[in-house]
Design a protein around this nucleic acid. Sequence first.
RNA 1: GCCCGGAUAACUCAGUGGAUAGAGUGCCAUCCUCCUAAGAUGGAAGUCGCAGGUUCAAAUCCUGCUCUGGGCGCCA
Length: 562
Amino acid sequence: MKKLVVKLIKKALKKKRVKLKDEEIENLLEIPPSADFGDYAFPCFFLAEKLKQEPDQIALELREEIGTPPATDFEDIQTAGPYINFYFNRKTLAKKLVWEALTYKKNYGKTDFGKKKKILVEFSSPNIAKPFGIGHLRSTIIGNSIANICEFLGFKVIRVNYLGDWGTQFGKLLLGYNKFGSEKKLQKNPVKHLLEIYIKANKKIYEKKSREEFRKLEAGDKKALMLWRLFKEISMEEFEKIYNTLGIKFDVYLGESMYNKKMKNVIQELEEKKLLKKSKGAKIVDLKKEGLGVCLIEKSDKATLYATRDLASAIDRYKKYKFEKMIYEVGQEQKLYFKQIFRILELMGYDWAKDCIHVEHGLYLGKDGKRFATRKGKTFFMRDILDETISLAKKEIVKRAPSISRKELEKRALKIAIAAIFYGDLKNNRSNNMVFDIKRFVSFEGDTGPYIQYSYARAGSILKKTKNQDKFEVYELQPQEIELIKKLLQFQEIVLDAYKSLNPSVIANYCHKISQLFNEFYHACPVIGSKEESFRLALIAAFRQVLKNASHLLGIELLEEM
RNA sequence: GCCCGGAUAACUCAGUGGAUAGAGUGCCAUCCUCCUAAGAUGGAAGUCGCAGGUUCAAAUCCUGCUCUGGGCGCCA
């Protein structure tokens, strides 16, 4: 439909001897702020200088040139000051939407944009031996959604979970376990005990000894390795449970520990390419001239660092996957760090370094505006947030359906809780910090995940109470219907927008908007028994399809009943 | 000190140069003999941090300032 408008404008401009490419016209076109101004608007300001005329006058004259296109396409084309407003034929729009949504179904909104090119998305990446806290929640939810969006657009996506299973933190843990550990406690509540140890050992007086412990681990000390394996196993078990609950899957699990041997090659390579410098006993890459500070590659005690492992991992990944793009979904506090890594890869001569993207997210802050710190034991744990949300969902469900079966209750509560948590995160622009308020997080009213699920279930219940009708007839459309139809037709563009900014909040906001428009329609337009029944049923089915496709991109599942 | 963000309604946040700045929460007032009230409708609530500048047009771009978060070699 947009192309039709472009065509008309192009033709009219030609008569005014103004040449613009289709793409340029498309970019100029706007969706007006209110339906009174039509479906698309073309602003004429930019022509004023060229044609030496008032924009209002230009609009009038261009309008004249456009003439009268077929009424099945446009109901009206009007000028309003410097704008030319295009009003599509409502019934044509309605038929187009219903036909497309119900024909393409789960493929509605898809394109072959990605052309099966490979994209690696690294996300979640929790630290072993630390509980899954709210810090990693964002990466998990956002990364998952970005992977879904890329997949929907026809990319071949590889989901990578890069575990933090190596580093000085294990020195702290090993030291802590030797000092404060208890086998009994470890068996009873392994994750909690590991955290306890970590907090106790994470003190300045133990710093030196911790580093020494890590160095021992890296040198292959048998006892240290054994404990390390045990800690990793314990954590992985817990993480797996959480991923299963959340419905999140990975194609590949990598760990920092895997690059233990390859790091020597990286260091050697850096040395050969004359990028390495000695400084204060350590080996660094100096990027000060470029304003990127210095990047530490090897500690003065010869132990390695995160950066060393990340370089090795990136090089390894490219060898293995030849990706078109690699996305790192990691917090914004590592922005400078990733700039360093990408630049070093570039300096090493890897031209694919330009295809590495750090997709950053803001932090969750406490109500005091300060960040949570696991180190101080001040944080929220995924497990607790989930449990609290689930139990609240159960209460709400039982209120409405007291006779629900145990099994169904569990199933529904989980889906609702996940929707609340996922949506609560994804509706926010990912790069900004946000205040974490558990009460708000588990709320089910207003702009929330459950609101979206509720709208879907509500729509479904109408369909259940009626018979399927093969044909429909479009009568005069109500404003609520028109608004809904127009928004539903935008889905494909919305997905592309979300991809371009790698920002799932675009989709989340869209889900809320169409749910809202549906609820307004629901109140204004009776369906069952009305003369418009056949069309309205089709519209509801189309709405459900679009909402389903959109919420799938967020990782949110919908419910037939609520 | 230097670098990178952020500041929009009482609160939490949308708003990627265009027409009258939007949601949700909370507050006030309505609507279940009517397809699910986890809903809808109406209302009160804004110097878009401050000051300049660019532009036909600025919450949006530029500069300075204020407040605030993060980062800046032996953590990840």
